[in-house]
Amino acid sequence: MEVRTIKVFTTVDNINLHTQVVDMSMTYGQQFGPTYLDGADVTKIKPHNSHEGKTFYVLPNDDTLRVEAFEYYHTTDPSFLGRYMSALNHTKKWKYPQVNGLTSIKWADNNCYLATALLTLQQIELKFNPPALQDAYYRARAGEAANFCALILAYCNKTVGELGDVRETMSYLFQHANLDSCKRVLNVVCKTCGQQQTTLKGVEAVMYMGTLSYEQFKKGVQIPCTCGKQATKYLVQQESPFVMMSAPPAQYELKHGTFTCASEYTGNYQCGHYKHITSKETLYCIDGALLTKSSEYKGPITDVFYKENSYTTTIK
């Protein structure tokens, strides 16, 4: 009895394709271990004539594949690729409408935090270190965002349907971005203890939790000093293409032309909904596939993004 075979390709990165001759009487799992086709788990399936010449994702289970996976995804987590594939199996079914010149995501599976993050990423200057993220990001900007969303979920250790947080998501993504040249110098002034300067680099240099107003941050924000008295913390120097200011959701007025974009969060910790506000020729609110415009805006804002380049204080 002759062994019926077909020729397929296996890959971990969709760049390096490895030619395989597979036995049609055995499952993919018996031949390769966990195997995925377009995100779908085909591990328990036997090869079919229609699979001839198709590319299958496999887990990096030998040295060659491990090197290829690390170079593309910059992670050695053995569960990463499987999590990416199972997320992709959902995100490829989502709709990605162009809204006001940006790629958004039609609401499904509690994905409003991903839509808000995706919209924000198209408006701030950011370059990702893992080629996987950078490639998928370019495709997302062009309207094909399924891979990018699935990668975000995998890097953030999230599953489809789980509630997510924009600030946490951005923080994970910033860790995989090139923020080497970003720098922030802060000064804390206390009447009792004097003053202390701190220099922050990388992710810490672009994120701040405690106030939404970048102007206020430049002037000074009140913080408790270690001595128990009130101290003032203010920005001395900022070198970065953008800054992200966050605070627990509270009524906040966004003035046209003073910011790049913002995240609105309605609801409580267990259950809520994100919308995205962007400042173009007027203010726009993007909620999944829905767009509304207004000249002014007041609502429960939790993150505001500002364009920056270089700032030095005039406070002496």
Rank of each mutant, 00 (worst) to 15 (best):
V203I: 13
E253Y: 11
K255R: 10
Q237F: 13
C149Q: 06
N309P: 12
N157L: 00
S50V: 12
S240W: 03
C149P: 06
T35G: 12
C285Y: 00
D109C: 09
E264C: 01
C112T: 06
P131H: 06
S294R: 12
A136C: 02
E264R: 06
Y274I: 05
T19F: 11
S295N: 15
I45T: 10
N129H: 11
S246M: 05
N61F: 14
A154D: 04
F242P: 08
D109E: 11
Y57D: 08
K92F: 10
L118K: 07
V8Q: 01
N16H: 09
D287S: 00
I223T: 14
V3N: 13
Q238L: 02
I301C: 00
G101F: 13
P249C: 04
Y284K: 04
V99N: 07
N268L: 00
Q270H: 13
R167D: 00
T76R: 10
T226N: 11
V160A: 05
Q30G: 13
N178F: 00
L200M: 08
G29F: 05
I223Q: 09
S50L: 14
N147Y: 09
P248R: 07
K7P: 13
I223L: 04
L283V: 12
F80D: 02
N309F: 07
Q251D: 14
Y311F: 12
P34V: 15
E71N: 14
L114S: 05
Y57P: 03
T5P: 12
K7N: 12
T302Y: 03
A132N: 01
S171A: 12
T43F: 07
I15A: 09
Y274N: 00
L153H: 02
A115H: 04
P130K: 00
Y57S: 06
Q238S: 05
A262R: 02
C190M: 02
Y297A: 00
K218H: 00
E296W: 09
M244I: 04
G33V: 08
A132G: 10
A69H: 15
F259L: 01
L212P: 01
N157K: 14
S171G: 07
K46N: 13
Y284P: 01
Y113H: 06
F9I: 08
D62L: 09
S79W: 07
L114K: 04
Q195L: 14
V58M: 11
V236D: 07
C190G: 05
E125S: 08
E68G: 11
K95I: 12
Y73N: 05
D13Y: 11
K93T: 11
V22E: 06
S279L: 01
G164C: 04
S240R: 01
A250H: 12
K158N: 02
N100G: 07
T27I: 11
N111G: 12
H276V: 03
M209Q: 14
S181Q: 13
T266N: 11
Q251P: 14
I301T: 00
N89H: 05
I315C: 15
N157D: 10
Y84V: 05
A40E: 13
A69S: 09
G299R: 00
K275V: 10
G39A: 14
K183H: 08
E144V: 04
E296S: 14
T260I: 15
H74I: 05
G101A: 01
E239G: 01
L235Y: 03
Y172S: 12
A205S: 07
P300K: 06
F70K: 12
C225I: 04
L81D: 07
T116W: 04
Q238N: 02
G82H: 15
A145K: 10
A146W: 08
M24N: 12
R141E: 05
E239K: 10
T312F: 12
P47I: 03
F217L: 15
Q222G: 09
G143I: 03
D165A: 05
P34K: 14
Y155M: 07
F174E: 07
T159G: 09
D287W: 01
S294E: 08
L179H: 03
T211A: 08
I301A: 00
P241V: 00
T258D: 10
K93S: 10
T159M: 13
S181G: 12
L118N: 06
V188H: 05
I315W: 15
A142D: 13
W107K: 07
T116C: 15
C227L: 01
K191I: 03
T198F: 15
V3P: 14
C285W: 11
L212R: 03
M207K: 03
P241L: 02
L81F: 13
F56E: 00
K201M: 08
T120R: 06
Q98S: 11
G161H: 05
Q216E: 14
Q134T: 10
H273D: 01
T10W: 08
A69Y: 14
H48Y: 14
Y306F: 02
T282G: 11
G202R: 05
K219Y: 01
D303H: 05
N147D: 15
E168F: 04
D63K: 12
K219Q: 13
C261R: 01
A250C: 12
G194S: 04
D303E: 04
T27Q: 09
L37S: 13
P47E: 02
D180V: 05
K275D: 00
K191T: 13
Q237P: 02
V206Q: 00
L121R: 05
T91E: 04
V236Y: 07
G210D: 01
L153E: 05
G228N: 04
K275S: 08
F242D: 04
K183R: 11
E264F: 01
F70C: 09
K44N: 12
Y28M: 00
Y96I: 04
C112G: 07
V221Y: 09
T75M: 15
T43K: 09
T192M: 03
N49L: 14
R141P: 03
Q98P: 06
L65I: 07
F80A: 01
L163R: 15
L179Y: 01
Q122G: 04
V166Q: 01
I301G: 01
T292M: 07
D63P: 08
T64A: 13
Y72F: 09
Y138P: 07
Y252Q: 01
D38R: 11
E52I: 12
I315F: 15
A145T: 06
H18W: 02
C112E: 06
L133F: 02
H256I: 14
N111C: 01
K233H: 11
Q31H: 11
A108D: 04
P131N: 02
I277P: 06
L37Q: 13
A231H: 02
A87I: 05
C261H: 04
G210K: 02
Y72I: 07
G288L: 01
Y137A: 05
A247D: 03
A136L: 05
F174C: 06
F70W: 12
V58I: 14
T313I: 09
E168T: 09
I315Y: 15
T192E: 15
G161M: 06
G101D: 10
Y72L: 11
V21D: 15
Q197E: 13
G194I: 01
K307L: 11
A250P: 00
Y274P: 01
T198M: 13
E71Y: 11
S310Q: 15
T278Y: 13
P241R: 05
T313N: 14
L212I: 06
S213N: 07
T266M: 05
S50N: 12
C225G: 01
P34N: 15
G267L: 08
T226P: 13
G272H: 03
L121V: 11
C156Q: 07
E239R: 08
Q30E: 12
D109A: 05
G82Y: 10
H51K: 04
A132L: 06
N16Q: 08
K54W: 14
E2I: 11
S50Y: 11
A115S: 09
P47K: 01
K280S: 07
A231P: 03
F70D: 06
Y234V: 05
A115M: 10
K316V: 15
R83M: 06
H51V: 03
S104N: 01
D63L: 10
N16A: 13
E162F: 05
T76L: 14
C261N: 00
E204F: 03
L179I: 01
L153D: 03
C149S: 05
A69N: 10
I286L: 04
T199V: 11
R139L: 12
E308G: 02
Q196E: 09
E168L: 09
P78T: 10
M26D: 15
V8Y: 03
S171K: 14
S295E: 09
K95Q: 15
D109L: 05
L81P: 11
K219L: 11
Y72T: 08
L153K: 03
G29Q: 10
M26R: 12
F217V: 09
T5K: 13
S295Y: 10
L114P: 06
R4K: 14
A150T: 03
R4V: 13
G39F: 08
P130W: 05
C182I: 04
N309S: 15
Q30A: 13
T27E: 14
H273A: 00
I277F: 01
E281I: 06
T27V: 14
Q197C: 08
S50D: 14
K218Q: 02
L291I: 14
K93N: 14
Q238K: 00
E264T: 03
P78Q: 11
C149K: 02
T91Q: 08
G101P: 03
D109Y: 00
